[in-house]
Design a protein around this nucleic acid. Structure first.
Lengths: 200, 200, 200, 200
DNA sequence: TATGAATGAGTCTTCATTCAT
DNA sequence: AATGAATGAAGACTCATTCAT
């Protein structure tokens, strides 16, 4: 067994420590950007020493990756693994409305994370692999969910993809941009109507 | 201490040199990411020495900014200042189809630029200012264009915003992701139908 | 972007390391000049890596400044905070003689520091501030000391200033110039006589 | 004849150009310091191109050296080659008073030059050589002048040296420091009295 | 002669990572 | 396990000097 192996922490205190590094480190990265955040700051934010970071993570990049894995459902469109079963074919619009509201809430937490990570998708193979797999699962889950609910629209995969994009853009709009010439309530209604129009 | 004046090149050869630095430098930045590209590489790609870069640009960041300014119409949704006047109310779909096709072509050139820059919007005030102004103009131009063509849809600004997002996502999908479970022809048709449905 | 905190070393070994950097770094700067000494050389002279320098000092300039603070009493006219109390009104000359001798010894250590720093007083606000405050204290201390000893010469501040200048010049003469047409013993006597003449 | 030889300008316009570079370049160096002034600034201040500087001067350092040579009499204690012959043994004090006044005027022009150059004396052999030769001449001239006027004080060389130092310090005091606790009129009188006391 | 664009070695500084304790 | 001091490679930027015109 090599000496420099990354230890998967077993003791409770260690797990907490690793979690802290991911949480606070990832927070900082999302807030200031990966390249504008150094490991000393991450360690400090997590309340640990710089040295210990390298016992739990291979390198700085690894912190980001684990952060993305942990918070994927808040950053990207959720995979909906534990989907709420309140769905009825008739309340499609309301179903998506609550999904959007939840997504907006999540986005408020993740701040710049989404775009920061999307940028890295292009220069970072590991992040790219994770993201694409995640996106695939996410789309597939929703497609299957809708099919199970009796929706048999042609090209449903493409429809879902487009709808996810619509929701994504909407959330960014609402959370970040605050264009003062746009009425967000109207925009939400328009997006919901479009989704319903697409899916039904 | 030094004066360090940035010279705006006047001679033809100098202009060409500055252009080369922007073009090749920006290309490299888009390809590998801003933080993964160093000034030596930029200079080398442009076929110049590192020193000369600083005669034409304040700093590395300035290269990025000028690149964004120069290629904005390829990276983001175009401002459509010189819009094609072939538009008829009846060929709305075909009008947007050719717009999308052009946009896709542009995106193929700009590669990862879009997301790289979107990420920096959050940590970089100058880029943010430019982008937001650009986006505002872009939306306004399209809204006015459509109004001039007799389209008086309620909430037209929001509608255009959503449509622009749809086109944006579509292009990324087509240019980058290559999800093998998605049929891009179907997707394009769906997006076009959605836009027409939204605008009319 | 980084926090870049300057750590004030607490552990004994760290204090020693910081001291080494000041001592050897300042020595080198005094010997070769501030602008002819680079950080790599300073680090090497102190037996440390370049990186560690920036844990203890904000920048290269900070090394110089701390060096000046630490060695001020050797470089400039001493503040005489812990003044020798052997002074009698009658042995004024001998008192100054021992002061000069001590000062000459110090100057031998500080080498070119004095003029190097005097030059920087004009282009460097922090150094200027320190120097002027130091000079003020120095003069004031001596004036008060003499007044306490019962010397009530008119214009004592100016007299002390002039005397300090005389001593300063004398020391430089003796330590550096080695003009071979000047008899330093005679010169010392002349300066001492002049000071006594001025003060009494 | 090598191609890169420094040309001593023959044509009038060339001489003027070389003079301009020395004058404005040296001014700038004295004002901002040698290391804080770059050749581009010097050329600009002299109204010439950077390239031409190297036809008249071996390197940047050479500009400084020629500047010092040209302005030595304003920067350092003058050599008094063309001494005013109004001197009478009885008006020693007034003679030195006018000398001090002239010196103060010169110092106002040369600004930081004196100390800047004194600092470089220690790291720059050429400057050191020039300065020491100049100082030697200066002292010798004054000594001879006084001897010719019938002053036969013992240790006259040392006396003159000390007096020159007194005047030097006085000028710096008056021109630069502006210590607000010092009365400069009193100081001037004290210095003059001291010199007279020393010389007679 | 003269220009000013171009060069590239050299400098300060940062920071991911390692190591002594 | 943990600390945080230490390392040193790498990067942005400057500027004395040269060169094409």
């Amino acid at each position: 067994m090599g000496e420099n192996e990354i230890k998967e922490p077993i003791q409770k205190r260690s797990i907490e420590k690793k979690d802290k590094i991911i949480r606070y480190g990832f927070d900082l990265i999302c807030e200031k950007g990966y390249y504008n955040t150094n490991t000393a700051e991450i360690a400090k934010a997590a309340g640990v020493s710089t040295g210990i970071v390298y016992r739990y993570f291979k390198d700085k990049h690894d912190i980001l990756l684990e952060g993305i894995r942990l918070y994927a459902d808040s950053i990207f469109f959720p995979t909906l693994n534990n989907i709420d079963d309140e769905f009825q074919k008739t309340n499609l619009k309301e179903f998506f409305r609550s999904m959007i509201n939840e997504f907006i809430e999540n986005h408020k937490l993740s701040l710049v994370a989404h775009e920061e990570i999307m940028a890295m998708v292009h220069s970072d193979k590991e992040i790219a692999d994770f993201y694409h797999q995640y996106e695939l699962n996410s789309t597939k889950n929703i497609v299957e969910f809708l099919q199970n609910k009796g929706i048999n629209k042609k090209n449903l995969t493409e429809v879902v993809h487009i709808s996810m994009g619509l929701v994504d853009n909407l959330c960014h709009e609402v959370v970040y941009h605050k264009h003062n010439n746009i009425d967000y309530n109207n925009m939400i209604e328009l997006v919901l109507d479009t989704i319903v129009h697409l899916i039904q």
